[in-house]
Design a protein around this nucleic acid. Structure first.
Lengths: 266, 266
DNA sequence: CCGCCGCCGTTTGTATACAATGTTGCGCAT
DNA sequence: ATGCGCAACATTGTATACAAACGGCGGCGG
């Protein structure tokens, strides 16, 4: 039984006045109304997906709470949601880690992902409006500059947009969401992969064929081309990981060394 | 490339209730062994999937806390995890509802599900061990009694086991998990569907053809048969829902009617 | 010298208290 | 009488306090 909390002014709790009125343009202002847990979740998600928080890294609740200037409660919420989405792994009494996906599981995920992306492409070929088809083609063209200048990171971004356009083109919001979820989940591992020498050009060429099939409305072709496209990435990618031996094949068996408070403080 | 299942209970992406029903009465392990949040989550999940908690029904945190004899904290955890898995919908400051899926979104989900189940069947045809193939056939036969006696509920259960066997036969744990998740998510709506007159027999016959294809190792056939099988369910099912008009086509617009939860009178 | 056992610090899991927002119903003005 | 505004209520979001469990470490015994 806690009787009473005698700290009226250390108020970390009162979130509203904390930052600033922000962009609350008098209009009833929905934007600022964000739960703290969401802020933390978004932040962590970003850090994980971009690789700032490396797979296997420990996520200490109190440290994160300090970092985000909130209490443990929203942090726990965020961690659990991320765990549900697969980006974070929580072991019952041992805290949370950034999900470390073994090459084996990664291969499994690619197997599913290639199928879903193929489905997206197939449906897109069938359902995209003329306008969407044109936009897709434009997006494809917009990848070229990054390709020619060799900016892998820029291409990575454009590549993402390209694929998202196809997801949306499936006109199946559920499929779109699921596919996106999987892509996000593997993204911490994919970034490095595009740095392989000839991969960018190949990727772009494959995209081109997919665009063509979609514009032509050839469902089966679009699907199989896309499946191939993703599968190639999968192959080269898993090969790469395996060769580097960056990750243990079986993460669950003997935990390698989850302890790595490398850089946690900001 | 994929050869054997890793079998770590990747807790991350929502796990099956493989979490042992817990040795409640075991001497050494008092009921406190399991996290309370998990108990609540499992309980709610069961109630939702079986339809005891109808879609659209309000889930009040304090009431649930009383019902499960815990504080709000584990209840909130459970709700959030269920929200992440899609069984529960949480609106920012307005609490949680049992997810009410509109017919439109349901159709979308079936579109994805048929594809994933087809993939499972295709892979199963390629990868199942002889033993697994036999077990599948046995499982299929085991459905017959329920069929003949017309026990829809019993058949429903066996049907589930049958499909799960195929998921497992894909030897892709990730695919297995994802497919199971989707099936779970639509299950609150499926139960009633099998009560349709001739559906049980049809379903069983379709299963039989799938088993044959898998035993014969015919991937493509197994896949397309399974896709058809699920699609048929989808079709009759969505028709059924639409005819009953049980659900609004677009849930997002106006919330149907957060129905008053029954008195929990403790 | 090595291995086992028990203590202690750290960290998670749960409960409760406090703050803030959405909702509902009532009163008032038109 | 009806619609609007306001205030009290109900319920969620957040913080903090408390308890239990895991892991490490040192002492003890073989």
């Amino acid at each position: 039984m806690v009787e009473h909390a005698p700290s009226p002014e250390t108020r970390a709790g009162g979130r509203p006045e904390s930052a600033d009125p922000e962009t609350e343009t008098a209009a009833g202002a929905p934007p600022g109304r964000q739960r703290l847990a969401d802020r933390v979740r978004l932040g962590l998600e970003r850090e994980i997906v971009t690789g700032d928080l490396a797979p296997g890294m420990r996520l200490d609740e109190v440290r994160l709470a300090e970092r985000y200037q909130v209490s443990r409660t929203p942090v726990r919420e965020a961690l659990m949601q991320l765990a549900a989405s697969g980006l974070v792994e929580m072991r019952p009494r041992q805290g949370a880690l950034v999900a470390a996906i073994g090459t084996y599981q990664l291969a499994e995920m690619f197997e599913v992902m290639s199928e879903l992306e193929a489905l997206c492409a197939r449906l897109a070929a069938r359902r995209m409006t003329p306008r969407e088809r044109n936009e897709l083609a434009a997006l494809h063209e917009a990848c070229r500059p990054c390709l020619e200048s060799g900016e892998a990171d820029g291409y990575y971004e454009m590549n993402l947009r390209f694929h998202e356009a196809i997801y949306a083109g499936s006109h199946n919001a559920f499929l779109e969401q699921e596919t996106r979820k999987i892509r996000r989940r593997v993204s911490p591992y994919r970034r490095m992969q595009l740095h392989r020498p000839g991969r960018l050009a190949d990727s772009h060429a494959e995209h081109g064929r997919v665009v063509e099939a979609i514009r032509a409305g050839d469902q089966e072709l679009a699907g199989s081309l896309m499946k191939e496209h993703v599968a190639i990435q999968s192959g080269t990618f898993v090969d790469f990981l395996a060769s580097v031996g960056e990750l243990p094949d079986q993460r669950a068996a003997g935990s390698p060394e989850p302890r790595e408070p490398r850089r946690q403080a900001r």
